[in-house]
């Protein structure tokens, strides 16, 4: 029975993740730890595996829409993988208390970041690395016009991806929100391209630490199976609901829920 409840929660996480452009980890980890009393290290490991499923499913759809900049992703993955390895190393040396507190503060920050309006920042300048590696690209904007964009500030983007990778490995999340902010604000990629490229990269980021957790034995089928299956089903449902639900209203409700859950995670961390 508890497995079915977890499956249902994971489906909801998959739907919300797709509708709000987030991974399921932000819902799955608190659910496992607060509702089912699972140790946070198992919860993080189960969540990372589900993020690979979300990312791969989402990327498969977005690739067909020609929004993903695969070359930029290939470069930035160097930063996220390095960060994920660092994050895994850190996670083996910190206690559950600090994991709860870190996750709680991260959720608290996210509850404000999610509401932040994202506007397109299109750059006319190309970073020298972008010129050498031919990273600039084009996409079809909301008006149906093909728009060309350049890529700025790649070193800053790499450093941001490194820290996003650390968070991903420690907290069991995709860190998509930070990746999109870095690509949108610093590298000046169009918001749709940032979101699609972030989605493409999340799978690799998660795999870097998920592989480590898997070998260590932290990914247990009893936990990870309903989570992974639920996320896969939820992501598929989310793509069907994408045009039918108001994302703005969902964002506001989700922000409120995130805020409450962040406080609960922080309180649990202080109690440990």
């Amino acid at each position: 029975m508890l497995s079915l409840i977890l499956l249902l929660i994971s489906i909801i996480a998959g739907v919300l993740g797709t509708l709000l452009g987030l991974g399921g980890g932000i819902i799955v980890v608190p659910a496992l730890t607060l509702l089912f009393n699972v140790d946070i290290r198992y919860a993080v490991a189960a969540s990372l595996v589900s993020i690979i499923a979300t990312s791969s499913s989402g990327a498969a759809v977005l690739l067909k829409k020609n929004l993903t900049n695969i070359r930029v992703a290939s470069v930035l993955e160097l930063g996220t993988v390095a960060g994920a390895l660092t994050g895994f190393f850190i996670s083996t040396h910190i206690s559950a208390k600090w994991l709860f507190l870190s996750f709680g503060f991260f959720l608290f920050l996210c509850s404000f970041l999610i509401l932040k309006k994202r506007e397109d920042h299109i750059s006319k300048d190309d970073h020298p690395w972008s010129k050498k590696l031919k990273l600039s690209g084009h996409y079809v904007n909301d008006q149906g016009q093909t728009s060309h964009y350049q890529v700025e500030n790649i070193p800053f983007g790499m450093i941001s991806m490194y820290f996003a990778g650390i968070l991903s490995a420690i907290l069991g999340i995709g860190s998509g929100i930070f990746k999109v902010i870095a690509m949108d604000n610093a590298m000046k990629l169009p918001i749709k391209v940032s979101t699609a490229t972030s989605n493409f990269m999340i799978g690799v980021t998660a795999a870097a630490s998920a592989g480590a957790y898997f070998i260590r034995g932290d990914i247990r089928p009893e936990l990870a199976s309903p989570v992974a299956l639920g996320i896969i089903i939820g992501s598929w449902l989310g793509t069907k609901l994408l045009t039918k639900l108001s994302a703005i209203l969902l964002r506001k409700i989700f922000t409120f829920v995130l805020f409450i859950v962040s406080l609960q995670m922080i309180m649990k961390g202080f109690k440990l």
Partner: peptide, 10 residues
């Protein structure tokens, strides 16, 4: 890097 993750896990 991805392979290094597996080694780290071991």
């Amino acid at each position: 890097g991805l392979l290094a993750g597996l080694v780290l896990g071991m």
